[in-house]
Amino acid sequence: MASIDLDKVLDKAWADRSVPDILAAPVSALKGVSDRDGELLKEAFGVTTVRELAGLKYVRWAQGLAALDTAR
């Protein structure tokens, strides 16, 4: 399982929270995702939490395509 540096991917306010708390957090808990970005994700895809963003089929599709590219 890959490790992740939470300080690099989360807003400072979320860096010391538990994984379940982070997954239930608004997408703006991710570093670089603004409240407005979160509103747009909600409007476009119905996504409001980090967990929902991770499970979004378009994200999974893009990750799958990227994996195919690195497999070359």
Rank of each mutant, 00 (worst) to 15 (best):
D35W: 05
A15N: 06
E39V: 02
V47Q: 05
T70M: 05
T49P: 04
A67M: 05
E52C: 03
D16R: 15
D7E: 12
D16A: 15
P20R: 05
D69G: 12
T48A: 01
R51W: 09
K31R: 12
A67W: 10
L68P: 00
K8A: 13
D11T: 15
V59K: 02
A54I: 09
M1Y: 08
T70G: 03
A29F: 02
V47N: 01
V59A: 02
P26K: 14
V33M: 14
D69A: 13
V19M: 08
P20Q: 12
A54G: 04
D35H: 12
E39H: 02
V33F: 14
D21Q: 15
E52S: 12
A24M: 10
R36F: 11
P26G: 15
S3Q: 09
L6A: 13
S3P: 04
V27L: 02
V27I: 09
G64E: 14
R17P: 02
D11N: 13
V33L: 13
K8G: 06
A25T: 01
S18V: 05
E43C: 05
I4A: 08
R72W: 05
L68T: 03
A15P: 14
T70W: 06
S34K: 07
L65F: 00
A2I: 10
A44R: 15
S34R: 06
A54H: 00
D7F: 04
A29W: 01
A67F: 11
A25H: 06
V50R: 08
L30K: 05
E43F: 15
W61Q: 10
D37W: 09
G64V: 01
L68A: 05
R51K: 11
M1A: 04
L23S: 03
W14F: 15
G38N: 06
M1T: 08
G55C: 00
P26R: 15
G38S: 02
L41D: 12
D37P: 07
D7Y: 06
A29S: 04
D11I: 11
D7T: 06
A54M: 01
L23G: 03
T49K: 00
A24R: 10
V33H: 10
A24D: 15
L40T: 01
T49D: 01
L30H: 03
R36M: 08
A13K: 09
D5V: 01
M1S: 12
G38L: 00
L6D: 06
A29C: 01
A62V: 04
V27A: 04
K12I: 14
R72P: 03
K12R: 05
K8Q: 08
Y58L: 14
A67C: 01
R60L: 12
D16N: 15
V19G: 04
G64H: 03
A71G: 11
L40F: 14
